[in-house]
Design a protein around this nucleic acid. Structure first.
Lengths: 309, 309
DNA sequence: AGGGACTTTCTCATATTTCGAATGATGATA
DNA sequence: TATCATCATTCGAAATATGAGAAAGTCCCT
């Protein structure tokens, strides 16, 4: 039984005329008759007492009409609300972001975003844990790189190179690594989840399995540790661009740039119909991180490595 | 959009499992997936965030679920009520009957009928006017004979011959007609709606166009007039059987019985699904008027015409 | 008495739905 | 850590349902 059939039935009841109701629905008289007949067959009830020229509700028809009217009104309300959900971003946008990026690059723009969409509330969780977007009910996440074999959708927000960096004090003490093989003599800092560093060498990708001297559970931890001169770490430009610019950190081993990186992405559940609030926020972030992002300084020349060597 | 699809959607939402919901509805996984997809396409909304192994409601899905739940409950109530209407005769049974038959042969049995179906109330209008059953909202009518070319349904309740009769006093005064051609010398009584009498003669049907000496607008009027010896009239056995039995009236011209009569019928609106209250009442009346009806005495020998001649 | 409008039935063409098998992905289990 | 079972989706083919058009029967109105 289709909603449309019920709606048609209510119209027939109101008009008392099958053909007229059929015309309203763009139906031929035969189709109209057939719809009504099949409705009666499905319910095994006579809905109308029929003359060859008109129809009068039976008691059963009246019963159905009463209930169908309420049910259809309910569904109309649903459609209206769905349209509202779909037309204008509203409700709550639940975002997951890693700790630093959320605090430093998302939060500062939220005020402006909310000016565009006052009806849309933001719930942002900043954690370096890899969250289950679908299972935990997030609308989207902002990630340094999309999960390689995930069925999630991903959209690139902007470039975000990663660099191997250290504090000037550390370089002064331990010297500068020239190639990945030198790393064995250095203190490496990172997070548990990233035990392998990939470099682009002149002869292709170089895989370095890292034995961390120190590791924590967040990007902020490795950031702090690096800044304190505890060793080398791989950081996103978006995280350390100010430190590189100011010379508090320096990038090293620039002949071997970090491979397999380069983008900051929005990740969201798959499906043909992305909710407009997600689309709106992604569009907004793209406008902020658009080419080039404001953090995309040339870190290699900001503090020439040669000066430190 | 089908009600069944909405119901399916609510089940999927409850189970969080498309295949399981599909099994409940006897659907293959592919059909289940297709249903959900087409629902989303129709609404242009993502209803579930999908993992390859499970589904989680989106905000839009939650909106739909809330409303669909109410709407479906409403429709379930409708179905339940329709089933009740259909299963047990209840509500009001609106009957039209001619004046005498209703009073004399329907009313006396209503008490017994109501013992069978206490929930069913009876509204009976006794009138000799030919009512528009459908237009005036009757469930059924009891008629001496079904309309010849009507689309109404008719069911025979019992036999009810009609006879040409008069009072003994009238016969004594005017003599007894022997054949239809004698009628021209007699006073004929009837109602406006029946200007023609049909007789079965030995050589086939004889049509007699009646010039009423007296006519009224009801069967009761012609009954009274006949009883008062004002003339001849055609009456149903069910109307005058007691008078014939007691000799207050006598049937005349028995060699030419009234043609085109013989049945008392229930008439009701056409349709594949007759309401149970109508069926119940018709069945009940058939049991009362069943072969032979209690009024079906042999009127020809109750008061032999020869005695009067 | 006649014309127009209505409902219904029939047949046939078209959409839609469904299943079965194959694919890709995930969680549980050993 | 690897295997297995389960899940959702896609594709093609068959089954089903839906729709229009023509024709018939009925009834109202002029």
């Amino acid at each position: 039984m289709r909603l449309e059939d019920l709606r048609f039935f209510t119209r027939v009841a109101a008009l008392g005329n099958l053909s007229a109701a059929g015309r309203e629905f763009g139906l031929s008289p035969s189709a109209a008759s057939s719809r009504l007949t099949s409705l009666e067959r499905e319910l095994a009830v006579q809905l109308f007492a029929r003359t060859t020229r008109s129809l009068v509700l039976t008691e059963a028809g009246q019963v159905l009409l009463d209930h169908a009217g309420i049910a259809l009104a309910q569904m109309d309300a649903a459609f209206e609300q769905l349209e509202a959900v779909n037309a204008a971003p509203s409700g709550v946008l639940r975002i997951s972001s890693n700790m630093f990026f959320g605090r430093k690059h998302v939060l500062p723009h939220l005020g402006e975003f909310r000016e565009f969409y006052p009806d849309l509330r933001i719930a942002i969780d900043c954690t370096d844990r890899i969250v289950d977007i679908i299972g935990e009910g997030y609308d989207m996440a902002i990630r340094g790189a999309p999960m390689p074999d995930s069925s999630l959708m991903a959209r690139r927000l902007g470039s975000d190179q990663r660099v191997l960096c250290a504090s000037p004090a550390y370089i002064e003490r331990k010297g500068q690594p020239r190639s990945p093989s030198d790393l064995i003599n250095h203190d490496c800092i990172g997070v548990e989840a990233m035990p392998i560093w990939y470099f682009d060498g002149p002869d292709g990708e170089i895989v370095h399995r890292v034995a961390y001297s120190i590791h924590g559970d967040s990007g902020d931890f490795s950031y702090d540790a690096t800044l304190h001169g505890l060793g080398l770490s791989v950081k996103s430009i978006s995280h350390v661009w100010e430190e590189l610019r100011d010379g508090r950190l320096v990038s090293v081993m620039n002949d071997y740039p970090i491979a397999r990186t380069g983008d900051i992405c929005a990740v969201y559940p798959p499906g043909k119909y992305t909710s407009p609030k997600v689309s709106a926020f992604i569009d907004f972030l793209q406008s902020k991180y658009g080419r080039p992002p404001y953090w995309d300084t040339d870190y290699r020349i900001s503090v020439p490595v040669s000066d430190l060597d």
